[in-house]
Amino acid sequence: MTSQIIDLASWLLIAGGGIFCMIGALGLLRMPNFFTRMHAASLIDSLGAPMLLLGMILQSGFTLVSAKLLFIALLLFFTSPTATHALARAARARGVGPDLAEELPTATDREDK
């Protein structure tokens, strides 16, 4: 009974992860400029991938395989935002404009939201 529930949960997670990866890739294609594309890519890194990995962990149970999957998830958890941040920083230093919708609100006038 419990094994069936775990099975169902893992398939749901894997299906959801696949769908989110596809949505992220679609966003990568649809978004108009570089900075907005990066948000779509971070959808793949921070939701699609962990869901897929968690689904596989549930599939493989309490074994070394799931330990390795956990390492992959942790590796992504630490490295993907780092790479994204490095990209954004390098792009800005190189003068790729973020193409804003409004003027830059400063730290002071964010209080009156």
């Binding site: 649809r30 108009p32 779509a40 959808l43 193409d99 609100p105």
Partner: peptide
Amino acid sequence: VATVILQPGLPISPTLVRLR
């Protein structure tokens, strides 16, 4: 973000914020 991507109008409003 997923709903934003899936909407045909693509309702984005990119913003830069300074945070303390």
